[in-house]
């Protein structure tokens, strides 16, 4: 790829630079290379973050609530609702009452089935012991007896065919990787026998 300065320049009404600009000067060309390189690095950074979360993260499994098979809004992703998406207010361990859009840290412990369930919701990251894991979410809704949380794990991007297949199994087991720096992503979705 060569990014050298244009040697002849015609005028263009909307698309062009000001007619008098004789192409990009050398200093600007260097800036352009930096700018394009930064864009490529940013996209690679997103990929690396995703890859590293799966490679270095701790794996837990969560159960979803039944998927609504009549959900019309399917396309390139499946909407997931977890058992820990709605939690009773008694699990709240914060000092003040929870507010909408507030960050919430959900302490998870494995049950006999192997799937993780919530044992407490904290406003600050709690200290974990042994098998416990922490998932960061944000409070979406608060009502008298409970709260709804969002984890950034509610969409699973799959092909149409796979999406349709998963939709028919109502309950799903979702494998999640939680990176040491707190980022989480779905690594696998399996169907559960009913």
């Amino acid at each position: 790829m060569s990014l050298s300065a244009p040697d002849s320049v015609a005028t263009a009404p909307l698309a062009g630079a000001t007619p008098a600009t004789p192409g990009l000067p050398a200093r600007h060309r260097r800036w352009l290379i930096w700018l394009v390189a930064a864009q490529v690095l940013f996209v690679l950074g997103v990929a690396v973050a995703g890859y590293a979360t799966a490679a270095l993260g701790r794996t837990i499994t969560l159960q979803t609530e039944p998927v609504d098979p009549r959900d019309l809004l399917y396309g390139d992703y499946l909407r997931l609702r977890y058992q820990i998406s709605e939690l009773p207010g008694s699990l709240w361990r914060g000092s003040a009452t929870p507010r909408r859009k507030q960050a919430a840290y959900v302490l998870l412990e494995p049950r006999s089935s192997g799937d993780f369930e919530a044992t407490g919701v904290y406003a600050e990251p709690p200290i974990t012991t042994g098998q416990q894991a922490v998932l960061r979410g944000s409070v979406q809704d608060v009502w008298r007896r409970g709260l709804r949380l969002r984890y950034g794990l509610e969409r699973y991007y799959v092909s149409d065919a796979m999406s349709r297949h998963l939709r028919q199994r109502r309950r799903l087991r979702v494998t999640i990787s939680i990176a040491p720096w707190g980022q989480a992503r779905i690594t696998q979705v399996d169907t559960l026998r009913q």
Binding site: P6, A10, A15, G23, L24, L32
Partner: peptide, 22 residues
């Protein structure tokens, strides 16, 4: 992404500003 930017510079250098900026 890279092809679009490189192509843009290429066409601007050839004097085809509209296509280059596009």
């Amino acid at each position: 992404l890279l092809a679009a930017y490189a192509g843009g510079e290429y066409f601007r250098r050839r004097g085809n500003l509209s296509l280059g900026m596009g």
